[in-house]
Design a binder for these strands. Structure first.
Length: 223
DNA sequence: AACGACTTCAACCGCGCTGTA
DNA sequence: TTACAGCGCGGTTGAAGTCGT
């Protein structure tokens, strides 16, 4: 797979050789990742920094899984794509050991067709959304959610009942259990008081309720 | 076996964002 | 404020592999 190496302006392009991989891996191991523009020169590689970064992140980096995307991973990708769209790096961030490039390729070659065909997987996602709605409805406490609307984080406060969201759908009314408070935000971000799975159920619910125009904040998921 | 069509996925490209001087 | 460099992201490309006839 890949491209055959060609020379352009004296630089190697195309598929990486085993020797190039070894040089890059050794360099990163001793110097750490970063400063990609200086990596080729210092490591003695006839590549662009960009190419080195890509090779490291998508292929050489430790902890990468390769191939054999599981059914669970596939289901998660479908759900996340419905929520996030083509934000592959965000989706990859929820799948340990997977790269954005790998997920993007997997989506474009396999999952897109499955979803377009209205496969059983898509039906399963719909079932998940209905299930998430039921569970969230049962929740009596406030739930924190940062919604990124038109590029800005819109905070929603349960007590204030603020309705400042803009976009393609309305938020639930202020007395609705789906609104959040800041205390829950801290707990959520620590990943201790609220299980990530529940966060995703809520995310699915937001999608199910027709709030696809809202994008989830990176901060909520990564902090 | 041969060959064309289709699929896969590593790698490249271009753009936008962010930090710095 | 502006210009520039570095980086990261999503879209696209194209060689290699697979499949169907």
């Amino acid at each position: 797979m890949g491209r055959t190496p060609v020379c352009s302006q004296g630089l190697n392009r195309g598929a990486w050789s085993l020797e190039e991989d070894r040089i890059l891996a050794n360099y990163i191991e001793s110097h750490g990742a970063g400063k990609w523009s200086s990596v080729p020169k210092e490591a003695g590689l006839n590549r662009t920094g960009k190419s080195c970064r890509l090779r490291w992140l998508n292929y050489l980096r430790p902890g990468l899984k390769r191939g054999n995307i599981t059914q669970e991973e596939e289901d998660l990708i479908i759900r996340l794509h419905k929520l996030l769209g083509n934000r592959w790096s965000l989706i990859a961030g929820r799948l340990p050991g997977r790269t954005d490039n790998e997920i993007k390729n997997y989506w474009n070659t396999i999952l897109r067709k499955k979803v377009q065909r209205g496969s059983s997987l898509a039906q399963a996602v719909h079932h998940e959304l209905e299930s998430a709605q039921t569970k969230a409805t049962r929740c009596s406490s406030s739930i924190l959610i940062d919604l990124k609307v038109d590029g800005e984080i819109q905070s929603k406060d349960n007590a204030a009942g603020d309705q400042n969201c803009r976009g393609g759908a309305s938020m639930p009314p202020s007395d609705d259990p789906f609104l959040f408070n800041e205390d829950m935000a801290d707990g959520w971000m620590r990943g201790e008081e609220i299980q990530p799975a529940f966060a995703w159920e809520f995310g699915s619910l937001a999608c199910f309720m027709g709030t696809e125009d809202f994008l989830w904040s990176n901060d909520v998921f990564h902090k």
